[in-house]
Design a protein around this nucleic acid. Structure first.
Lengths: 114, 114
DNA sequence: CCCCCTTCTAGACGGCTGTCAAACTAGACG
DNA sequence: CGTCTAGTTTGACAGCCGTCTAGAAGGGGG
């Protein structure tokens, strides 16, 4: 069954998510958004939470958004961000050693492999 | 109180793990190791699975090891790697939106904590 | 229409990171 | 000891990434 693991394409795709999480600022940013039960957080709140320049703060949510981990919308003057639970769940499940984890994604067939 | 999320120290610590996963080669490497029910995989098998130079292959498991995601041991001529389920579980749980996730780590309250 | 506030874009810069070739170390086997 | 295989270390180099400053774009309010 599972002697084979992730094929390259799947790995690259998933990597996007993990790469986005691989920065302290973004991880805190995401946690800040996720911790908000209401779901939405205004960028201005994010700016206040870090001692970083505006553009830098602006940069990180974009990375999270491009990785599919959060969504965003402008309403009037302010921009709001919210998490995309499905994407987080997908990454979470991959690491969950108590489930099929890697095995499920991997298999891509018996001999497939570059 | 959970309006606040991950503090910086916690974020940096967790980031190590995600950063290690943020590379297609390492993700595939890890999946290759994790998919092995026996648990252990010889480096030579990893080398065969990728078309990368020896040193490069050698580099990636080291990153995984330094992130605490895998362990390694030399036995005779060969070196073996195995996963550290606890570490993977910790990362997985953080992303599991059905649990306390970020909230739990952040709050640093009643005893619990990484 | 003009100004202000919020947010993003553009460009630049320094540091980190993935890769390789070359050389070295650790064991096994005569 | 000599030599072969397995793996790591070292050093170099290109490309990516996080950060900043400066400036632009989207809207609200006099």
């Amino acid at each position: 069954m599972v002697t084979q693991a992730l094929d390259e394409d799947a790995a690259v795709d998933l990597t996007q998510g993990f790469k986005a999480l691989g920065d302290p600022v973004r991880l805190r940013l995401l946690s800040l958004i996720a911790a908000r039960a209401g779901g939405e957080v205004c960028v201005c709140e994010l700016t206040d939470a870090f001692s970083l320049s505006g553009p830098t703060i602006s940069h990180h949510p974009r990375v999270l958004r491009e990785a599919g981990l959060v969504g965003s919308q402008r309403r009037g003057t302010w921009v709001y961000y919210w998490v995309v639970p499905a994407k987080l769940a997908a990454l979470s499940q991959l690491l969950d050693t108590s489930t099929v984890s890697f095995a499920a994604v991997c298999h891509a067939g018996p001999g497939a492999r570059r």
